[in-house]
Amino acid sequence: MTDSLMIEVANLTKRYAGNTAVSDLSFSVRRGEIVGLLGPNGAGKSTTMRILSCFLPATSGTARIAGFDVFTQANEVRRRIGYMPENNPLHQEMRVREYLKFRARLKGLGLRRSRERVDIVMQQCDLTEVQKKIIGHLSKGYRQRVGLADALVHEPELIILDEPTIGLDPNQIRSVRQLIKDLGRTHTVLISTHILPEVEMTCNRVLIMRRGKVLLSETSENLQKTMNDGQIITEILAPIEALRTCWEEMAEIKHFDIAPTDGDFFRCALTPSEGADVRPQIFSAITQRGWTLRELSRSRQSLEDIYMRVTRAEHEEESL
């Protein structure tokens, strides 16, 4: 039963002097998934990752990685994970190749194997041309890739990345995301972030955390469905009375709103009945009547909205 599960976390609690960082957390990740841990600062993402990577022990509860307990079988677990901590700490005074070689040897790879692996990960992370440079002199994007290369060098089954794109410029973010996506084909990946589009773009599944708890665990597909529940917005040049009757006649539209905008156009916000996509009907109705159309779009509910909804609901519950 543990074969298909990469991470199993059950009732995990971590208390620091006085405050609870993670409380009664349970979730599991299957092999081959890319899972995003999402949450505001201080939600317990980093603490969870530190426990999973055997850096910190949990106060109570268990966590297993590939079937091994993170506390009692720490060395087995460490061999199977590649972990990149928050802010990506590196030995600034070392050269890229030297550092990766050192990490590979430290993780128990043989001499020849470590040489091969270092070459491979440097290629994978596009580091080959800076291999002789001193890490402290590299740009942030390169340093981030050095950190990623370090996490990959011993071919771990699970890759844990704590905020891998923090502080990068948009181009670098894109290339790091692409790299993570590529990794997801062969590895299980757990990333944490508070940047919402990142999760939307790279992950199969999202876990939204707040105050040390998982509030929502949803696959990206389901999320997409939820997100598509939004309204249809259209801007049409037509007499307002005619518009009103037109929407009233259309059975799929539950509710509508018409407001005048600039240039005699009317902006209509249409709420269709559950799950229906009425854009084609709307378009044909407009063309039949010979009206002028300048916008027809479905407002997608963003992950941000869902996130806000989920975290706010929690907040209200607390204040009751």
Binding site: F55, N75, I81, P85, L106
Partner: peptide, 14 residues
């Protein structure tokens, strides 16, 4: 201070 302690202690070393 630099945080490399975390990468060190999460490598398979005692």
């Amino acid at each position: 201070y630099s945080g490399t302690f975390e990468t060190l202690m999460t490598a398979p070393v005692g």
